Simulated assay, not measured.
Amino acid sequence: MGPKRKIACFVSISIVGTLIIMAIISAIPGMFIPWRFFGVGILCAGSISTPVCFLLVRQNEENRRLRRELEQRLADLRRLADIDGLTGLLTRATFFERAGQGHHRPGNWHLLIDIDHFKRFNDDHGHQTGDAVLHAVGAAIRDALRPVDLGGRLGGEEFVLCIADCDEREATRRAEHIRASIQALRVRAPTGRIVRATASIGISPADPMLPIEASLHRADIAMYAAKTGGRNQVRHAA
C-alpha cells in the first residue's frame, strides 16, 4: 500500500471512529447531538488526523529507507571482511573457514600459488606496479574458478585455491591453465612500461582424514620445489 492510500485509510478510520463515538454519545439520554454537529466532527477529525497521519506515514517510510540502507551497509561490511580488496579473492581467514566446511568431501585439491620474483616489481617499478600485478593475478585466478571452487589470498604474493570434484588429471590441467593465464598477463607500470608475471604452483590432493593445514603444507612444499626447479611451473606434492 502506497503512502497516499495509507493516509486516506487512516483518515477514514479516524472519521468513522469519531462518528461512531458521537453516535454513541448522542444515544445517551440527555446527551443528544444535533445532526449538524456531525459535520463539524467530520471536519475536525479530518483536519486533525490528516497531518498527523501524513507525518506518521512519512516517518515510517523514512524508517524503512534507513533500515534498507543499514542492511545494505552491513552486507557491504560483511563482504569487505570476507573479500581481499586488492585481488577480489577471499581473505585468509574466510578461505580457511569455508574450505574447512567442505574438507570432509572427497575429490578436493589444494593449490599454492606464488608470484615469481614479486619483489622486483616493487623495487624496479614501485608499489603501484606491484599492486597492479596482484590485482591482475587475482582476476586471472577468479576467472579460472567455478562456483564450487574457492580462491583466497594468503598474504603478500601468495594465493591458495581449493578446487572441488575433480581427479588428478583435471586438477593438473586447471593448475596449468592458471599458470598459463598468469604468464599471459600484461600489466602497465606507471612509467608506461609493460611488465609480465609468472607464478610457481604447488598442488596436493586434500585428505579428509587430516587437517586442512596438512594438505596445504604439502602443496606449499611442492610450490617451493617449483621455485627451486626453475619457477613458472606446476609441481605435485610427493
Rank of each mutant, 00 (worst) to 15 (best):
F118K: 06
G156Y: 06
L216A: 09
D124M: 03
T18L: 09
F37D: 12
G192R: 08
A237S: 15
R173K: 12
R64S: 05
D123M: 01
L154E: 05
C53M: 13
E61W: 11
G30A: 10
S26P: 10
N108R: 08
A93T: 13
A184K: 07
L77A: 15
P205W: 02
D116G: 01
G17H: 02
D116R: 03
W109Q: 03
R196Y: 08
R193Q: 14
H104G: 10
F54S: 14
G30Q: 09
R188L: 05
R79T: 12
R58I: 00
G192P: 11
N122C: 00
E71I: 07
D114Y: 01
A197K: 00
S47H: 05
D207A: 10
D84V: 02
G39T: 11
A27E: 09
R142Y: 01
R188K: 13
E176G: 06
L86S: 04
R153L: 04
R153T: 07
R231V: 03
G126D: 02
T91K: 06
V57L: 06
L19W: 07
E157M: 09
E158M: 09
I7T: 14
S14P: 01
T172H: 10
A171P: 01
R174W: 08
R120Y: 08
L43W: 13
W109L: 02
R105C: 07
P211V: 07
A164I: 06
R169H: 14
L43E: 09
I182F: 13
P205C: 03
A139C: 11
A136W: 06
H135I: 00
P190E: 06
A225V: 04
V52E: 03
S12K: 04
H236M: 11
K227R: 07
R169L: 14
T94S: 13
A45N: 10
C9E: 10
I24T: 15
K6H: 08
V57G: 04
R67P: 00
A237T: 11
R196C: 09
V57M: 05
C162G: 09
A171N: 05
R196S: 10
D124G: 01
K119D: 04
V16K: 04
L134Q: 08
L112N: 00
T228D: 15
M1S: 07
G138W: 06
P106L: 12
A132T: 06
A45Q: 07
A214Q: 14
N60L: 10
F37C: 08
A226Q: 02
C44M: 13
G152S: 03
M22A: 15
V195F: 00
D123F: 01
R73N: 14
R153E: 06
E61D: 15
R67Y: 11
H110W: 08
G30Y: 11
R105G: 00
R98P: 07
A132I: 01
A144L: 08
V195E: 11
R36W: 13
S204Q: 09
R120C: 08
D76T: 13
T50R: 11
E62G: 11
H104K: 07
S204D: 12
I83L: 04
L74I: 15
R193W: 06
V160K: 05
A226G: 04
G41I: 02
T228S: 13
R188M: 10
I83P: 00
I115G: 07
F121G: 00
C166F: 00
